[in-house]
Design a protein around this nucleic acid. Structure first.
Length: 822
RNA sequence: GCCGAAGUGGCGGAAUUGGCAGACGCACUUGACUCAAAAUCAAGCGGUCUCUGAUCGUGCCGGUUCGAGUCCGGCCUUCGGCACCA
């Protein structure tokens, strides 16, 4: 008898798969399924999070292949990014060399895990034949008016020496290094994602295959609010101040106006007045605060009077204009109408500066009194102190006042989104250059498509903490203007790497195309991705950007799809001892050491068995041992009976132990099929296989060498087929040992025999007043009445109900009888 | 503050439609095999008690129901997201 030796069989089958182009995508006909795991950043080493996401994807890909689908299951590299540049600075290696070496190392690890990727479709975002099309897509956006350059207050990370998009700021810190983000005014490139805000929001409804929490996060991020834009007029100068409000119904309650410190009117209103110095000092102080401090709810609301007044368009009243620290220039119009009675922030501000509180909405059952309020009244109610609108329900009032404003030309209904345009410029070298040149005569000019890619120069020098080397690379910098041929200067910023990853799943469908980003027909044959798998950390970032790209490309006629990912699985983290694996905690377990000690099959099995995929998983060395034991146990069983089982006798009429075994095997098969296909519950699927193996051991211990060859042959073959997606190497080995030709991974998934599941007798539970009082084995298919009669004639039950009256009886066929007695 | 998720044995987890709580695995205990150990095979394994049985038990309090881990109402704790968004 041969021992199970993963160290020998795993490389053997990996070599066999590689030499036979085993996982080449089948493009012919059949129903398609696109399984995709988020491609990794090539850091150089796989961690357990990678192992988990690939294991999940691989089980699905292999299972669906067996179910008869043409499966697309590719892999690639999110290969641009800052770590490569930092490595260049620290270790004096070129980012390209560093990156490609890492890719080789990680690919080797992925192969050692036995994942079924079609490597012919590998994409690498830092390769010129990929980023050529990233640049081409940028130009497409530019031509469609979706890429523009503007000067704006942007988030800057000093440590990374670059700007960041809004989505890339977490709690005021840089998403990558945690460094506190500061605000700078810079001229930068943006993508007009806000043009797609409504569709990005609306189409979340199509994504019922996504976790609800991810949809909600995106919904909150887009942050739609409906309301009105209302114009106030500055007394004297006639200057307009538009404000956005969700509560136009409270317009008659406005008692002041607040501007953001950055509001352009602040200077105009105060220049040359006696208040200038005080206002300027306040503005300076406010602008110096970091965004974190400024946006903290704890922060006291402060402000200063500008000396100017403005006029409420509906009641003609003059109210003072202040500058306040709680108004943000980046949202709405940068100005807020102050309604102290009905907005908590305004209320606090008004109390501090003794501004009047005027009630215009009141609850139905009692009248509010301003002097008795200790918080704003923000609920619905009836309008008061609002001239002709008095008595209206405030929801009605919103519409009525907006209509009145529109009539008089002082305002209109307006929808505002929290979502900002996507800032994509990065002041770094290791990214796709933005294909734009600046000509003295012609201004901003896009590079012509024929000249793409704008390649990164290789001969660059990196300086510690410094500027991008592109900015000082003479050969890169100077070029001819595509329009006039005159001397021009290249854009030296590169693109946010999230752009590269916003379309890679489309490139997989046609990865070698050198004429187009991808062919429409090939794309439509596979896209959208049927099942996407990755970490929750991309709930907004990558997943929102990719949705945006897909919609723009759909509008440009390049893809049929309006959404890129039909179903999304956000897998949980891999922890150890209750904490995230990290070097500093010393609780890191690497896939390499697991493969070396137990083999990839054991590691994969454990990672899928220990928890459902979307939940966090606690690594347990003991648990891994258990999975290893299980695989050895299966192998011993197969090895012992393989020679008998290859005779494959007929099953024929069976009873007793044989029938039991068949029921266990087919029952497990049913459960495994449903758990993978419908519920993604790999953990319970594996436990079902374990139960089936246990049943086979019970049978073995009873019959030893007198087993029924036909039944055993069927049992072993089904066991191996069920296990193959989870433990692909051992699957092949056992399949071969059972005397089968071809590969186990090319077999159709077995169908369970429902007749094997039917029981002649079932055990039911008897309850008295809802309490478990006995069990009874009865023949299957008895009616409720018969079950009840049998329950009552059971001696123990009869004793319990003796002398009592049966008030009610419930009988669930095949399950239980409950007698309610008094 | 707002939004969301989760709380089940010593541990990871299961219970899919309201119907036997704790499948499967880990740990532990015992037996077989062995000179012995490892490996393996087998049995047991929520608490309490007057232990062939009863009783309590799925974060807490209450409700609906013949019957609740599952449904409803109100809390508590932990985690995640957003956070002066007008």
């Amino acid at each position: 008898m041969a021992e199970y030796n993963a160290g020998i069989i795993e490389p053997k089958w990996q070599k066999y798969w590689e030499e036979n182009d085993f996982y080449k995508t089948d493009e012919n006909g059949k129903k398609k399924y696109y399984v995709l795991e988020m491609f990794p950043y090539p850091s150089g080493k796989l961690h357990m999070g990678h192992m988990r996401v690939y294991s999940i994807g691989d089980v699905l890909a292999r299972f669906l292949t067996m179910r008869g689908y043409s499966v697309l299951h590719p892999m690639g590299w999110d290969a641009f990014g800052l770590p490569a540049e930092n490595a260049a600075i620290e270790n004096n290696v070129h980012p390209a060399d560093w990156t490609y070496a890492n890719i080789e190392a990680m690919k080797k690890q992925q192969k050692a895990l036995g994942i079924s990727y079609d490597w012919d479709r590998e994409v690498t975002t830092c390769s010129p034949d990929y980023y050529k099309w990233t640049q081409w897509l940028f130009l497409l956006f530019y031509k469609r008016g979706l890429a523009y350059k503007k000067k704006a207050s942007v988030n800057w990370c000093n440590k990374c020496a670059t700007v960041l998009a809004n989505e890339q700021v977490e709690n005021g810190g840089c998403w990558r290094c945690g460094e506190e983000v500061i605000v700078k005014d810079l001229e930068q490139w943006f993508l007009r994602i806000t043009d797609y805000a409504e569709r990005l929001l609306e189409d979340l409804k199509l994504l019922d295959g996504w976790p609800e929490r991810v949809r909600i996060m995106q919904e909150n991020w887009i942050g739609k609010s409906e309301g009105a834009e209302i114009e106030f007029t500055v007394s004297g100068s006639g200057e307009k101040i538009p404000v956005f409000t969700t509560r136009p119904d409270t317009l008659f309650g406005v008692t002041y106006m607040v501007l953001a410190a950055e509001h352009p009117l602040v200077d105009k209103l105060t220049q040359g007045t006696e208040r200038e110095a005080e206002v300027r000092a306040f503005v300076e102080k406010t602008r110096k605060l970091t965004d974190v401090d400024r946006s903290s709810t704890e922060m006291e609301k402060t402000g200063v009077f500008t000396g100017a007044y403005c006029i409420n368009p509906l009641n003609g009243e003059e109210v003072p204009i202040l500058v306040g620290n709680y108004v943000l220039m980046g949202y709405g119009t940068g100005a807020v109408m102050g309604v102290a009675a009905h907005d908590q922030r305004d209320f606090e501000f008004a109390k501090k500066y003794n501004l009047p509180v005027r009630i215009v909405i009141t609850p139905k059952d009692h009248l509010l009194k301003a002097e008795e309020m200790d918080a704003a009244y923000i609920d619905d109610g009836v309008m008061v102190n609002s001239a002709q609108f008095d008595g209206l329900a405030n929801e009605e009032g919103k519409r009525a006042i907006t209509a009145e404003l529109e009539n008089k030309g002082f305002g209109r209904a307006k929808i505002t989104y929290r979502l900002r345009d996507w800032l994509i410029s990065r002041q770094r070298y290791w990214g796709a250059p933005i294909p734009i040149v600046y000509c003295e005569k012609c201004g901003t000019v896009p590079v012509e498509e024929e000249s793409l890619p704008v390649e990164l120069p290789n001969d660059v020098v990196f300086k510690q903490g410094g500027q991008s080397p592109l900015a000082s690379h003479e050969g890169f910098l100077h070029t001819a203007c595509p329009l006039c041929g005159g001397s021009a200067r290249r854009e030296t910023d590169t693109m946010d790497t999230f752009i590269c990853s916003s379309w890679y799943y489309l490139r997989y469908t046609d990865p070698h195309n050198d004429k187009q980003a991808f062919n429409r027909e090939k794309n439509d044959a596979w896209v959208p991705v049927d099942q996407y798998i990755g970490g929750i950390e991309h709930a907004i970032l990558h997943l929102l950007y990719s949705r945006f790209f897909t919609k723009v490309l759909h509008d440009a006629g390049m893809t049929e799809a309006v959404e890129p990912f039909t179903r999304l699985l956000a897998q949980g983290m891999v922890n150890k001892d209750g904490a995230k694996m990290s070097k500093s905690k010393g609780n890191v377990v690497s896939p390499d050491e697991i493969i070396a000690k137990y083999g990839a099959d054991t590691g994969r099995l454990f990672i899928l068995f220990a928890a459902p995929p979307e939940r966090d998983l606690d690594w347990s060395d003991r648990g891994v041992e258990g999975c290893y034991r299980f695989l050895k146990r299966v192998w011993r069983l197969v090895d012992r009976y393989a020679d008998v089982a290859t005779q494959k006798g007929e099953i024929g009429n069976i009873e007793g132990a044989e029938q039991e075994l068949r029921r266990a095997i087919h029952g497990a098969l049913k459960k495994v099929t449903e758990d993978i296909e419908e519920r993604f519950n790999f953990n319970t699927a594996i436990s079902a296989v374990m139960e089936a193996v246990n049943a086979a051991y019970i049978y073995m211990n009873e019959k030893e060498d007198n087993i029924h060859a036909g039944v055993m042959a069927e049992a072993l073959n089904i066991l191996v087929l069920m296990l193959a997606p989870f433990a692909p190497h051992l699957g092949e080995e056992m399949w071969q040992r059972l005397g089968n030709a071809d590969s186990v991974h090319h077999q159709p998934w077995p169908l369970y025999d429902s007749s094997a599941l039917q029981l002649a007798e079932v055990e039911i539970v008897i309850q008295v007043n809802g309490k478990l009082r006995g069990r009874l084995t009865i023949s299957a298919g008895l009616s409720s009445e018969e079950m009840q009669a049998m329950a009552m004639s059971d001696s123990r039950i009869a004793e319990l109900i003796e002398g009592k009256q049966i008030v009610k009886a419930i009988a669930v066929p095949g399950k239980l009888v409950n007698l309610v007695v008094r």
